[in-house]
Design a protein around this nucleic acid. Structure first.
Lengths: 185, 185
DNA sequence: CTGTAGTGGAACACACGTGTTCCATGACGG
DNA sequence: CCGTCATGGAACACGTGTGTTCCACTACAG
């Protein structure tokens, strides 16, 4: 039984990637557009994902894996809470258009249902070690981080000339200041 | 020629209000849902706004007026740049679901095409008087404010028990810290 | 060469939102 | 009471997205 799934997996991945890219810009995107962007016929798309919901589930899965990978790269256990949070910001920022997708699902918490508890634990560590203002609730700090991530990503998208590193610097400065609280140097 | 438009204006306003409320939650909302929320028939809605675009234009007009009113209440000329910016945050926060609507139109700048220059001028005043970190570009500060406004509004919506004043306090603390820069007390 | 896997185009039925027309009903002032 | 006004329901045609079926084409292994 040879593994002919090499081609299938490649096609499937192309569809999911195109879906993430297009859904980020337009959540009401049609399957035809996604198929065209993936350079695949609409028939083929339906062969991999019978219903729209199936594709959405695959997109959610892929997004969740990317988030988990980024969180692992951030080494959340290292340094103060604020330092870990800023490392996470930098890793998440590299996720690109996926940010819009995660953020637009304000209420659809399906995304980081597993991630968020870990991030909130980092914030509480920051509360304890004094690097994060204890007045700010952990879930507030998390939503603050996400809204700034989204703002930074769209800021970058609206200014074709802007450097990715420059915007990332603005983002980390802003989050660091917002979280630090009024007491520090 | 008696002014029978009392009823008409009331109906029209009810439709626009319902549209703002529903479009904030779901930008792809159908006209039928809007009509139902406004407690009018779909026929009546079409009598006031022939096409969907006409209703959208009316919503944009109403939103623009509310934004202008809030900016006037904030007395942007008074105090330091940072103080004026925080007053504006508080007034904007009271706009409620309109925040989602304005924010979701990331690229559709039709909203504050008149407002934004004024706000950016406030930020530059803050740059000059030392109340806002000059390292942060004015348009960055504006997008920072909007993303935090949106985050605060959805934070409030997701926590039915949370006090509006408490969330507003979190918002102003966060924005004040983010904008203040690393140098101050 | 032959069979199979992966693909894509064409066509269809269905659901939904939209914009329109027509007609009936209730309210209000003359 | 009667005419007008604002309204809402029913029905229709149209466009678009969706999910399905059927068939033809290409690449590749045996």
């Amino acid at each position: 039984m040879r593994v002919t799934t090499g081609t299938k997996n490649r096609t499937r991945q192309a569809i999911v990637d195109a879906a993430i890219e297009l859904l980020a810009g337009n959540p009401a995107c049609s399957l035809g557009e996604i198929a065209a962007a993936a350079q695949v016929g609409r028939t083929t798309l339906h062969r991999y994902f019978a219903e729209r919901a199936d594709l959405m589930a695959a997109v959610a899965d892929e997004g969740g894996e990317r988030l988990t990978r980024a969180a692992r790269l951030a080494e959340l256990d290292r340094g103060t809470g604020a330092e870990a949070l800023l490392r996470l910001c930098r890793e998440y920022f590299d996720l690109g258009s996926l940010l819009s997708l995660v953020f637009s699902e304000q209420t659809g918490d399906c995304w980081d249902a597993q991630e968020e508890p870990g991030v909130e634990a980092v914030v509480r560590r920051g509360h304890a070690d004094g690097s994060i203002d204890p007045v700010l609730p952990a879930d507030w700090v998390v939503s603050l981080m996400w809204s700034q991530l989204y703002a930074a990503w769209s800021y970058l998208g609206e200014r074709p000339g802007a450097s990715r590193h420059y915007v990332l610097d603005l983002l980390t400065r802003t989050v660091a200041n917002a979280v630090r609280g009024p007491g520090a140097i």
